[in-house]
Simulated scan of single mutants.
Amino acid sequence: MNSRVNILASDLDATDTKRHPFSSYPNGWYIIGTSADVKAGDVKTYRYFGQEIVVFRTKSGELSAVEPYCPHLGAHLGNGHVESETIVCPFHAWGFAADGRCEHIPYADRIPAKASLKPWHFREQGGLILLYWNRDGLAPSSNDAFPVPVEFSAESWSQAKTTTPLEVRTHVQELAENAFDLGHFSGLHGMGYPDVKIDDIDENSMHFTQKMDYRQGGIRLQYEVKLEQCGPNTAISRVTWGSIELILIVTNTPIDEEHIHIRTVVAIKNPASPLLREILFRYAFWYTRKELKKDVPIWESKRYHAKPMLCHADGPINTLRDWIQRYY
């Protein structure tokens, strides 16, 4: 008996010809670094969203993020330097303020009215530097808030720390789906199958509770995670493990259409022992990076299916997909 099945072109998922059938840059706030990365007088060049971004801090401490090329004759301002409250072009020494306006031309007594740099929408919060991306160039609204945890400013919590970003060939949305893909925790990470309950869904975030109870290396591990998916790119986990409380943020920013940077940010409710705090930091970073690296070869080789063949126990993947469409 011939068991071959003829597959028609109309039967194929439309995504079979493209890895991800949507924009590589969903609208929203993205972490590009920490405040400590850019000290007073520093000039740094970052590459995100398929373009370069020059970030500098004036002598008084004001941060700015601007387009990289001088509007005069196109010199790259990443090669410039800070003088007082301006970034100075390395070619003709035109000086630009933090808001992008040209304030000084050393050999001219008049400044062209349109001499300015395009500034990015950005902010510093909780020791993090965030940029806002909108495909139509719109400014962020109050509904586009990035909820940096209030604990990051609380005296009873440690200062947040972050890791060197991990570059991966994948899409922002793949990481969001990862948290809702319950089956992979057991199949790929050997963690057992979590108990998950969606607590709330609002304009900016999805809140759910995840409980784990499993054995690893002969040790029984029990913990509860309050997880908040913020926009398309950031998951904030509040982890309780006995008397230990910590906040773990896994966030990612698109470098270009094929690659992202993944960052881990951790803050810990201060234990009695500074040594224990340091051990917890190191363990959180080590464990998160170890588990993320298990996902990397999957992300870098998989294809997105718009109509996946899910079973009832796979988790609320489609709920996330429906909600996340607002960012495209």
Results as ranks from 00 to 15, higher is better:
V5F: 06
S10Q: 07
A14G: 06
T15Q: 06
K18E: 09
N27H: 04
N27S: 08
G28T: 08
A36L: 09
A40I: 10
Y46F: 15
Y48V: 02
F56K: 12
G61T: 06
L63I: 03
P71E: 00
P71K: 10
E85I: 10
C89H: 09
P90I: 11
D99W: 00
G100Y: 08
C102T: 01
E103A: 04
H104T: 10
H104R: 14
I105M: 13
D109L: 09
A113Y: 05
A115E: 03
H121I: 00
H121N: 05
G126E: 10
G127Y: 09
L128F: 02
R135F: 02
A145M: 01
P147F: 07
V148R: 03
Q159D: 05
T162L: 02
V168H: 09
T170M: 04
L175E: 13
F180L: 11
S186I: 10
G192H: 08
Y193G: 00
Y193S: 04
D200I: 07
N204I: 02
S205C: 08
F208Y: 09
Q210E: 14
V225I: 15
C230N: 11
I236S: 06
S237E: 13
E245Y: 05
L246P: 12
L248K: 14
I249F: 03
D256S: 08
H259C: 05
R263I: 03
P271K: 14
A272H: 09
P274I: 02
P274Q: 07
P274M: 05
R277S: 10
I279Y: 07
F285C: 04
K290R: 15
K293V: 00
K294S: 11
K294E: 14
V296Y: 12
C311N: 13
D314V: 05
D314R: 09
G315R: 02
G315V: 01
N318S: 08
D322S: 13
Y328G: 04
Y328E: 13
